[in-house]
Computed example of a mutant assay.
Amino acid sequence: MLKHGLDPADRRRPERVGRAELAQRREAMAHFLRVAGPQLDQLYSLVALPGCNVLLTDADGVVLDQRVGDGDAAQFRDWGLWQGADWSEAAQGTNGIGTCLAEGRQVTIHRDEHFHTRNTGLSCMDAPIWGPDGRLLAALDVSSARADQTGRYNRLISAQVGQTARAIEAMFFRASFPEARIVVAMDDHPEATMLLAVDRDDIAIGATRAARRALGLEREGAIRPRPAADLLGRDDDLAGFERAERAAVSRALARAGGNVSAAARALGVGRATLYRRMGRLGLNAK
């Protein structure tokens, strides 16, 4: 890691942010941490052998939450696998958390694959978690210092880490659109979280990162509202809203980009008529 000016023989612990900064980072992600907490408990219950530590970081690689046994706490604290520690690649070189975040993909860094020699006794299995806005939000990590850690065992843990990361991502997406209907954009990609948030008028107002990529939506940030039926390639009758006048008008407006005249032409009505219907339906021109 010459570009970061790191020395593989450096045996200093990872830097930790101050107590106040850690509290600020946790507060900024408080909603996410509440959603993720039960999933961390469940993951730890599945991998809770001596010598294992479950960690959740923010997008910068700073550890915000963890699950570790009392008998292992001192050792992992000494390694720096503890709340507040910075495990970004810029700070630690190749490691499970930092490399997962840098590459935006699930990774396993086994023992001497770590950059720092003081970390070569660890096996780290990590998966990224993407936010509702399509941006990288966190990394989920299981770090093991067990001497009997094998490649087969790493693969089993890695599969569970990936599954838990997808569960957290889906749960947080749902929690971020509490009034919306959540539909599966595609069900033939079980390794990805492909969800759409759809409002009562069948307009898609949110999408997970995987759904954005699959459906050609905006990569990050808010998505432009579009009829869910258009995105999913389904007939309107399957969406169940085709006879609802409000939904029909909303879809026409969304397809026209909010242009009332164009929407009226698409619906085969006059502009004044459409305005009257919009008023009666409680719809406003954008």
Results as ranks from 00 to 15, higher is better:
residue 254 A to V: 06
residue 44 Y to H: 14
residue 143 S to D: 01
residue 282 G to Q: 08
residue 201 D to I: 04
residue 109 I to W: 04
residue 237 D to R: 15
residue 116 H to G: 00
residue 265 R to I: 12
residue 17 V to T: 08
residue 92 Q to S: 05
residue 226 R to H: 12
residue 122 L to K: 02
residue 5 G to K: 06
residue 51 G to N: 03
residue 203 I to P: 04
residue 210 A to M: 04
residue 210 A to I: 06
residue 195 L to H: 11
residue 219 R to P: 01
residue 176 S to F: 05
residue 202 D to R: 14
residue 52 C to S: 11
residue 133 D to R: 04
residue 226 R to M: 12
residue 62 V to L: 00
residue 133 D to C: 03
residue 201 D to Q: 13
residue 36 A to G: 03
residue 143 S to A: 12
residue 154 N to E: 15
residue 42 Q to W: 15
residue 4 H to W: 15
residue 141 D to S: 01
residue 106 Q to H: 07
residue 261 S to G: 12
residue 250 S to G: 06
residue 156 L to T: 14
residue 261 S to Q: 14
residue 79 W to D: 07
residue 104 G to D: 07
residue 90 A to M: 03
residue 117 T to E: 09
residue 18 G to H: 09
residue 118 R to G: 00
residue 221 G to Y: 10
residue 146 R to C: 03
residue 125 M to K: 11
residue 29 M to D: 06
residue 152 R to H: 15
residue 97 I to W: 04
residue 242 E to M: 09
residue 41 D to T: 07
residue 49 L to W: 15
residue 217 L to N: 08
residue 171 M to V: 01
residue 173 F to W: 12
residue 219 R to T: 12
residue 119 N to A: 03
residue 38 P to M: 05
residue 92 Q to Y: 05
residue 221 G to V: 10
residue 138 A to N: 12
residue 221 G to N: 09
residue 60 D to I: 00
residue 104 G to E: 06
residue 263 A to N: 09
residue 38 P to C: 04
residue 234 R to Q: 14
residue 225 P to E: 13
residue 69 G to H: 09
residue 100 C to S: 10
